[in-house]
Design a protein around this nucleic acid. Sequence first.
DNA 1: CATATAAATAGTAATAGTTACTATTTATAA
DNA 2: TTATAAATAGTAACTATTACTATTTATATG
Lengths: 133, 133
Amino acid sequence: MRYSKQREAIRSYMEGCHDHPAADSVYAAVREELPHISLGTVYRNLMQLVDAGELQVVNTGDSVSRFDPITRKHAHFQCRECGKVMDVKGPSLADLTALAKNSCGKIDSYALCFTGVCDDCLARRSESRVSSK
Amino acid sequence: MRYSKQREAIRSYMEGCHDHPAADSVYAAVREELPHISLGTVYRNLMQLVDAGELQVVNTGDSVSRFDPITRKHAHFQCRECGKVMDVKGPSLADLTALAKNSCGKIDSYALCFTGVCDDCLARRSESRVSSK
DNA sequence: CATATAAATAGTAATAGTTACTATTTATAA
DNA sequence: TTATAAATAGTAACTATTACTATTTATATG
């Protein structure tokens, strides 16, 4: 894998990025620094970084792939109101397989995404409830 | 929701269908009975049946929506070799939220899909290993 | 039973996310 | 310095899904 300023920009953007952006968000962000970068380059490099073990793909079930710089397997939470995705610590593969009753094959990974309403949206709700009274 | 033979065919096909087909598989299957049914009709009716609580959407993370006549929330297992999706009993929302450490908001649902190699593919593997010796 | 009407359909076009292709640029080894 | 292979930008293609529209059809009512 040869150096390229495009990949470096993507890598350094993703490094401290904990809001699980989809490719188009990464594209928008990196374009501030490299206005001529193409969306295809963003996709290609994100996948290369995944293959290199520097990123992880997160699929919440809403038809877009998101990217996470924390490569240790972990659960996520997505707010159905604002769409935000957050990390969830706790469940390990061992915990989860211990709960699983079926013997369908050899389990070696998982994807777990919780759904609900995030604290911010809950707060926003009660704010507007109060102010409308 | 008015009767239609198309919806009835989709409903009765899905009723006893436990292999979690995607829309295109449902389309192919129902076309044997109704050769002129259109793919759009299949999608529309599958979603209507989901809205009516007769089906559930299953997202394994491979970019297609699958459909499941068991509407009680449950986990799944997908074989990375053959793509097959199976039901997994055991983990409940209560079990899973008990494991989750973060307080990101109010969790009210989840999607859990295990990944690995199914028993059939494991058997196929050892078969070919034996026969190639 | 006839018929009005609103729901559903088939067929097609459009959309979103993603991948593939290709001519050109660029990192880097010799 | 230069050869070369990897990477890029830009565009086209692809897949899953949704939207649109003219036509058909289930069904409630007179």
